[in-house]
Design a protein around this nucleic acid. Structure first.
Lengths: 251, 251
DNA sequence: CGTGTTATTGACCAACATCAAACTTAGTGG
DNA sequence: CCACTAAGTTTGATGTTGGTCAATAACACG
């Protein structure tokens, strides 16, 4: 579907993302732009990759929102991360052949698939690119750690506030949020699955945050009422996102 | 302190560990054995690296038990992983300069520090080694995901059982557990901080597991009473550890 | 033996889950 | 433009897992 503009958009998204976490030389950017991609669309709720699969490509998210999740024994779901355009949520499949979790579209989505072989080639030819890609997967891990700490030790209020801060800063860092507001195209049940809470409780906490003026929202559009208080409520410290400038630009 | 035997032990530990998750060529092993290390000891409870540090070396654990942890706003602690000999818990510091968490010795510990410069050199010279190291950090991330799912969605009983399974299999896979039994040199309060529970509750759950014959222990020595039931109780599936043979050898 | 840490117990409590119903909203087709 | 529907949000009532506090018992170590 519309290969020309979509592919170049894919490449620009990727470069924007990588430049938010590291510096890229001209050569590196050129090499990245030469990466072959195959665009595919997914509808809301479709699985992009499934636990147990052994994919031979990585999916670069071009448009839409995506999550990683596991389904546990009793049929409960835990979402382990949300992803925004520019992310490659299954970059890890490059060296971990069997998926230990699934990837699903939370909105209608456009994904640019890049063959593992092409990624292998570009990384072997260009040590700078191994570094950024590796770094990107390490930042994923840092985010998992932060979530783990949150689910393990933070209250429901802190968790919700923290998540809002995280999504906002990440969107900002790739130019996908306006100052003070952003799209969060996710149901409260999905938030709950990411926060280790019930959707009922998420709803109540969101109401508290609105009542206290920290945020407001209509539909899936979130407006930040008081950034400082929201950060405080979420015990949020950007450090763990390892953005290029330490994230100072966004806080 | 005793450089000769300690260093070679460090290298053997590393190689054993890496061979549990990937195949290594002779060249790769030779290169790894040439890695310069500086051995240091830490006492129980000492911090090895601290959140906010920008280490210039990676620590390869040679002897002892180590954990990664974060301290949150209200002074609560969340342990995010336990590490056993052969692990390089801060390998990530290679591409994530500022530590977003701390590393502490849970027992008297021996760590072999490897300068980042040396790791950079060995990886640039040997694509096989980038792959294993990268893979190792990806497996760390997979473990975080599994813990996240556990803390988010599993009951206390499941979490405790799951953790016991995990530690057991990981020790087995590097030859540090006998069949059916292993050392777990960790207090119940530390387990609690890893599981997102209170130490009181961990104690009660452990008693249940003993009463039901799934495990038994004296001091810090755990004996598995019924492996199948323990796995079932913990909803444990080795897949996420991404061991070389899929982990089938250990289950 | 004493002393400090860790494990265990009991009583009580709170955060959050569950269940179920009502209300909104956005979309769809007539 | 108006039912009609399905998804999502909100509310209330009630239940449970696991937390907190505090005291006691076991150890381990010098």
């Amino acid at each position: 579907l519309s290969p020309r503009p979509a592919t170049s958009k894919a490449h620009e998204r990727l470069i924007t993302k990588l430049e938010s976490i590291a510096d890229l030389s001209g050569t590196a950017k050129a090499a990245l732009r030469a990466l072959p991609v195959r665009i595919r669309s997914f509808e809301e709720n479709a699985d992009i990759v499934r636990q147990g699969d052994a994919p031979s490509e990585c999916g670069l998210l071009v448009e839409g929102f995506v999550c990683r999740y596991k389904v546990l024994g009793e049929g409960q779901r835990q979402i382990m991360s949300f992803h925004i355009p520019g992310d490659i949520p299954d970059l890890q499949s490059l060296h971990l052949r069997i998926m230990d979790h699934s990837l699903a579209a939370l909105t209608p989505t456009e994904v640019a698939f890049i063959p593992h072989a092409a990624v292998d080639r570009i990384t072997q030819a260009n040590p700078e690119i191994v570094q950024v890609f590796w770094r990107d997967t390490l930042i994923d891990a840092a985010v998992f750690r932060e979530w783990l700490a949150g689910v393990g030790r933070r209250t429901a209020h802190q968790r919700v506030a923290h998540l809002l801060c995280e999504v906002y800063v990440r969107l900002l860092s790739v130019g996908l949020a306006e100052p003070g507001a952003f799209q969060l195209p996710v149901t409260q049940a999905e938030l709950a699955d990411g926060l280790g809470l019930s959707s009922v409780h998420v709803n109540r906490v969101l109401q508290d945050l609105r009542r206290d003026g920290l945020i407001s929202y209509r539909g899936r559009y979130v407006v930040i009422g008081d950034w400082e208080q929201l950060k405080a409520a979420g015990d949020f410290d950007v450090g763990y996102l390892h953005l290029k400038d330490g994230g100072t630009r966004w806080t």
